[in-house]
């Protein structure tokens, strides 16, 4: 069992969904994949297909139009799965907090495991967030084993 758990920690494939952000965080996520930051060091691949993804990176506030898309994508991801809210908007709505069409943070729609503040977030923060999320997954897997 140890081997599989280790694999889960070593190979988080991410799915990125833009929920209505300003693009700042999106391009930083992409930037995190590029040579300077190279998320692939951690086995991270931007897979783009919810059915094969482990980590859902959400940017931007949930709004009245796209919350169903977010929900759908989350439901199409098999367990174990993690959700990381990337950016201030995804955490709370941020600068869009009083926009009429915005529901607020994405935790209104799907359960969020890690919140990353920043507008826009820096690639280093994304790396930190993934490490945090994986720690949480490790904790989860351990507690399951105890049961």
């Amino acid at each position: 069992m140890g081997l599989i758990q280790k694999s889960q920690l070593k190979s988080p494939w991410v799915l990125h969904f833009d929920c209505g952000s300003c693009n700042g965080c999106d391009i930083e996520i992409l930037a995190a994949l590029t040579p300077k930051f190279d998320l692939e060091r951690f086995g991270i691949v931007n897979i783009g297909d919810p059915k094969q993804a482990d980590v859902l990176l959400v940017t931007g506030p949930a709004n009245k139009r796209n919350h169903r898309v977010l929900k759908n994508l989350y439901n199409q991801m098999p367990q174990p799965k993690l959700v990381i809210a990337v950016g201030t908007c995804a955490c709370t709505g941020g600068v869009f907090h009083n926009c009429p069409n915005v529901l607020g943070g994405v935790d209104n729609v799907v359960p969020v495991d890690v919140y990353v503040p920043g507008c826009a977030v820096r690639p280093e923060q994304i790396i930190d967030a993934v490490v945090l999320a994986l720690n949480k997954l490790a904790g989860l897997a351990q507690s399951e084993e105890e049961e």
Binding site: G24, G60, N63, C99
Partner: peptide, 25 residues
């Protein structure tokens, strides 16, 4: 319409000086 946040409305609601930041975003 997936990213529609209602920014123009928010601009009308806000103090005009604060809007630079929302416009930037």
């Amino acid at each position: 319409g997936y990213v529609h946040r209602g920014i123009e409305r928010a601009i009308e609601l806000n103090d005009y000086r604060r809007n630079i930041y929302i416009c930037e975003r």
